[in-house]
């Protein structure tokens, strides 16, 4: 089933970027305002799903050449590594560190190790959602 709908494909490209950047925004802002790894990850995957709907799975795979199972594994490893890292410093498992910095242009900002953990969550959510969609889609 190969449709050739130029308008949908064009709109999808634009909307994809809008949703994707919104996802990134919501993910990064998660520590202070509603959002976070889960929602960000889900939004990002729905952006990709939109592309899949507009084009087809094989095209999307060439556009975004990511193996989603690997992505899931990477996410899990990042999360686990962030959680266990404090043990090297003699702190309990899952201790998070944060500090505030003043950067040029941006101003006062904060950095959290919790953010790294959330990155892991983000990657796992994207990885699993896309694995599911892709494997089912390919099985036609």
């Amino acid at each position: 089933m190969k449709t050739n709908d130029v308008i949908i494909q064009f709109t999808a490209k634009i909307v994809f970027f809008i949703i994707f950047f919104f996802a990134i925004h919501i993910f990064l802002a998660g520590h202070y305002t509603p959002g976070g790894g889960f929602v960000g990850g889900l939004l990002a995957s729905s952006a990709i799903v939109l592309l899949v709907l507009a084009f087809d799975i094989n095209t999307v795979r060439t556009i975004i050449p990511v193996t989603y199972t690997t992505l899931t594994a990477c996410g899990l490893i990042i999360a686990l590594a962030t959680a266990s890292f404090p043990m090297l410093l003699g702190d309990p498992f899952f201790t998070h560190y944060f500090d505030y910095f003043t950067l040029p242009l941006i101003g006062k900002t904060s950095l959290h190790t919790a953010m790294l953990f959330d990155t892991g969550v983000f990657l796992v959510v994207v990885g699993v959602t896309m694995t599911i969609i892709q494997t089912i889609g390919e099985d036609e």
Partner: peptide, 24 residues
């Protein structure tokens, strides 16, 4: 925890274990 969104901070910090196993 240096955060503002309590729900998210609970997820990634206070109850990080839950989240870790959840993504597992």
């Amino acid at each position: 925890a240096g955060g503002g969104n309590i729900v998210n901070v609970i997820l990634v910090d206070y109850r990080g274990f839950d989240t870790l196993f959840e993504i597992a």
